[in-house]
Write a protein that binds this DNA or RNA. Sequence first.
DNA 1: TGTCCACTGGAAGGGAGGGCTT
DNA 2: AAGCCCTCCCTTCCAGTGGACA
Length: 415
Amino acid sequence: MLRHGLFEALLRTEPIFRNKEVLRPTYTPEDLPHRSDQINQLASTLVPALRGETPSNVFIYGKTGTGKTAVAKYVGKELIEAGKANGARVNFIYINCEVVDTQYRVLTQIANALTDNWNERIPFTGWPTDEVYAKLREKIDASGGATIIILDEIDKLVFKAGDDVLYNLTRINADLSKARVSLIGISNDLKFTEFLDARVTSSLGEEEIIFPPYDAAQLQDILKQRAGVAFKEGMLENAVIPLCAALAAQEHGDARRALDLLRVSGEIAERESARRVSEQHVRRAQNKIEIDRVTEVVRTLPMQSKLVLLSVILGEEHTQRKGLTTGESYDTYRELCKATGSDVLTQRRVTDLLSELDIMGILTARVISKGRYGRTKEIQLSVPAGETRAVLCEEPQLELACNARLPQQKLSAVL
DNA sequence: TGTCCACTGGAAGGGAGGGCTT
DNA sequence: AAGCCCTCCCTTCCAGTGGACA
């Protein structure tokens, strides 16, 4: 039967958002509060591009959600404008190395960004790498002026493909006659520089810009600025923005997190047809974001890790207490493997899988000594059992064990 | 005080699978 | 196609250990 007025009822409720898009991480705002130092620093490093000189390469470092990408894109946009106004040719190419993560793809991406003509594009596979490099050189030279290349999440590229690309790109100026290239590397992980050739490190790090985390007050400013555009007038209770800022400040001052919180709070309020967004909505949003994160992590776990995790959940259920020993969870795991027809790994391997789950924050495992009764790890689930179990149940192989459970007596005999 | 439990976690190495070169 | 190397996942082996208990 059709429910009449299903959408009418929803449409009648006053919308809370004016423009939700400005709260999304992909949005680059016109104005970046508390980042003027970094903007100026980057701009003054790049300004030689407008004078026909070669700008230094720049390395940008900062934790997630500190505005690195936004600042780089913002300065890029301004630079192109200034170039047009002053008759200087400036190319600005943004590459996210999490997506474009091999030498071939990076070079192709840059070359194709400099081509308007579809027929001249380099195919996504097929060419020898040195030929791509030669073509790229030719295109950069043909385009002339300055070409600024942003390599975002550059650590991902180095881990995946090594530093050959960076080595080649940092030396490309020597092979150019009419044009100049400078690189901006962005990373939230400093460790990756250990894997770089010393020549690449010194060349890439000619200039360094550090993005410190935002504190709670700065996050409030950011939220206020965006909330003004995102929400309709008077839709936020006074406590909402300070709370979002405080919660995000606890998590290493991540602006992305703060904006997510605000957006999800609004969505929850809207779904409930609430008149305004309240503190309660923020708390619920915090909870929802955390559960979504866990759900995503658990869903993408390899099969054996899922088995180990499920055996911890089942083990806690059956023993009716928090905190299992390694031996207990391994016994449950073995039963579970038999019940699902999976391979049984050794205890040694399972301890490693447990440690991995510990590092991911899905459970906590700490070494305790029970004296006479040996030394072991005490393993506790640190995520909601119900939701986690529901995600594990999605796996066809685990569905039965998850829902129908293991044979009761068999398990209790073991435990 | 020494014993001994139930492990921990390092080291070394096997083998499957993918990618690259020849 | 063959050979080689690398990475990942895993096993086997084993020395080491905190602290309750005799």
